[in-house]
């Protein structure tokens, strides 16, 4: 580097760090502003009747059907994407030949990049119309599962890969079969990481709207265990649709739904992070 006068060098450096500080502020401030802004909008309209009434109620509409629907989707994706994702992660971490595993990992990551509205459209064409499932819980759950599967696969694989080598060596020295090694040796220390992956995947699916618009559609009534031809309501739809309605009552409902959605998601994300942090400590202790 050519010699420059010291003062100029420090001036440049100072300017650079001021700009970097500004950039960091532009990241931190909006993150706070979104959460706080939405909670401030939601706070005045939160009331207990939101939990006891459905959107069907004309006098005093609530969000019971939407909240229950969102929970139904959370359970649904855990049931469908959970086992597939965990098994897929186990395969990639423990069995996959290098090149094949690399290819599957690659496609999984690419799937996560498919726009969610495209997944929604395909689910509409293939499931709602093609297989004649109708607007239903199951169509929505399958669309959401496809979206969060890559996250679960990745976190499972990473959690298994973090288990110290010494444990594998001990298991193999004992002559344990692979399945026993995975069940008794590798899964216990990896479990918190896998669980936190599931939790964050549920957080992501809870916040999705686009893939549900044309698969679950919308219902003013509480979800029922009927899986086909039975539209389901969910929280994000309330925010999306009611905010565009002229009446103040509807807009209040949209604000409340946005507030509840973001509270649920913050809870899930930070719960997941807490589990991961504990796992790191545990794994560090295991390593000999």
């Amino acid at each position: 580097m050519a010699y420059k006068r010291p003062r100029l060098r420090h001036l440049r450096g100072g300017l650079f760090w001021v700009l970097c500080g500004l950039a960091l502020a532009i990241i931190v401030a909006p993150a706070v502003a979104v959460v706080v802004g939405v909670l401030i909008k939601a706070a005045p309209v939160l009331k207990l009747s939101l939990l006891t009434n459905t959107t069907q109620d004309v006098q005093n509409p609530g969000l019971q059907n939407a909240i229950l629907g969102t929970l139904a989707f959370a359970i649904g994706v855990l049931v469908i994407a959970g086992p597939i994702g965990i098994l897929g992660g186990i395969y990639l971490a423990e069995f996959a030949p290098r090149r094949y595993g690399g290819a599957m990992r690659f496609f999984s990551a690419v799937l996560a990049g498919v726009p969610s509205i495209v997944v929604g459209y395909v689910a509409y064409v293939a499931l709602v119309v093609g297989l004649n499932w109708g607007y239903s819980l199951l169509s929505g759950v399958v669309a959401l599962s496809l979206i969060i599967l890559p996250y679960i696969i990745k976190t499972t694989e990473v959690s298994l890969a973090q288990v110290p080598r010494s444990l594998r060596e001990a298991a193999s020295a004992l002559g344990l079969s692979r399945i026993t090694t995975i069940r008794k040796v590798l899964l216990p220390p990896a479990l918190p990481g896998i669980v936190s992956g599931l939790v964050i995947a549920v957080a992501i699916s809870t916040g999705e709207t686009a893939p549900l618009l044309f698969t679950a559609n919308w219902s003013n009534f509480n979800p029922t265990p009927v899986l086909f031809h039975n539209p389901v309501g969910y929280l994000t739809y309330v925010t999306y649709y009611y905010i565009g309605q002229p009446s103040a009552q509807d807009q209040a409902l949209a604000s409340a739904a946005a507030g509840i959605t973001i509270l649920m998601i913050l809870l899930l994300i930070f719960g997941g992070r807490l589990i991961t942090a504990r796992q790191r400590k545990m794994v560090a202790r295991l390593d000999v």
Partner: peptide
Amino acid sequence: PLSTFLELLAGIPSVVFGFWGLTV
């Protein structure tokens, strides 16, 4: 602590961003 804001930004759902962009 500061990097949690990045996670926060990643976790905020699309519809909430839309709501915030529209109303705030």
